[in-house]
Structure formats: structure tokens, C-alpha cells
């Protein structure tokens, strides 16, 4: 819920700065390793944007695959979860390179 409210705040701030009054589409980038459940976010987005500038805006969620780098052997690999082990050296000390994003990417405005 508070994530959806944060999204709306970012949109409203941008509306003031960029002088637009209607929003058609909102693109979010949500990494598969972030702890956001897209369907829950969609539901909350519809609730918090009611009677706001983003009322009826379409929400497009771009999922980003997880990707990590092993801190021991520097091997880079796709990650399905934050507790995957390195397929090369079997170590769990993996730095997330991408896939933990929660970003407002862009808006289509009128």
C-alpha cells in the first residue's frame, strides 16, 4: 500500500514540475528479486489513485530478471532468488547486480 502511495507521490511531484494534468500510462520496473508482489501493487495502485491525477491510468509493470555476481569467484549468473548459490563455486555470497529494482520508469501524460 505504501509503495503505491509512494508511486503516486512521485507522479504528483512530476506533474507539478513538468506541468501535465492527466496520466494515461505508468511504467514501473519491478525486479524479480524485490519483495514486491505485482498483483498486490496493481490492486493498491487502483485504490490510491482513485480521484487523483492518475485515476484510470494504466499500470504497466516491467519485470526485471535477477542477476548476480559471486563475491568469491566473480562469476556472473542469473538469480532466481536471493539465496541461490554460485553454480561455479557453490558459495552463497552473491552480490545482486540487477533484479532488486523498484522504480518508476516513465509516464505517458496528456
Amino acid at each position: 500500500m505504501s509503495l503505491a502511495e509512494n508511486v503516486l507521490q512521485i507522479i504528483e511531484q512530476s506533474a507539478i514540475e513538468q506541468k501535465f494534468t492527466r496520466i494515461k500510462t505508468v511504467w514501473l520496473e519491478i525486479g524479480l528479486l524485490s519483495c514486491v508482489e505485482p498483483e498486490a501493487l496493481r490492486f493498491h495502485f487502483d485504490v490510491v489513485t482513485r480521484d487523483s491525477i492518475a485515476h484510470h491510468a494504466q499500470l504497466e509493470i516491467i519485470r526485471i530478471q535477477g542477476y548476480g555476481c559471486c563475491n568469491h569467484c566473480a562469476h556472473e549468473m542469473p538469480l532466481a532468488s536471493i539465496y541461490d548459490s554460485c553454480p561455479k563455486c557453490d558459495n552463497y555470497d552473491i552480490r545482486i547486480i540487477r533484479g532488486d529494482e523498484m522504480r518508476v520508469k516513465e509516464l505517458e501524460v496528456k
Binding site: L3, N6, I10, F20, L28, R103, K105, E108, K110
Partner: peptide, 27 residues
């Protein structure tokens, strides 16, 4: 005349605004 300022037919008056901001940036 609208916000996108485009004269070409078929191109929507809607425009794209890049945000590229972390959802939790305020926090």
C-alpha cells in the same frame, strides 16, 4: 497546440515523461 506539440497526424498528443526514480527514494 497540445502538450506534445506534434504536428504529424497519427501521433498522439500524449507525451512521455522519463522519471527513473526509485519508488522508495522519498523514504
Amino acid at each position: 497546440a497540445s502538450i506534445a506539440g506534434t504536428h504529424a497526424p497519427g501521433i498522439s498528443q500524449a507525451r512521455m515523461v522519463k522519471i527513473e526514480q526509485d519508488i522508495l527514494s522519498k523514504n
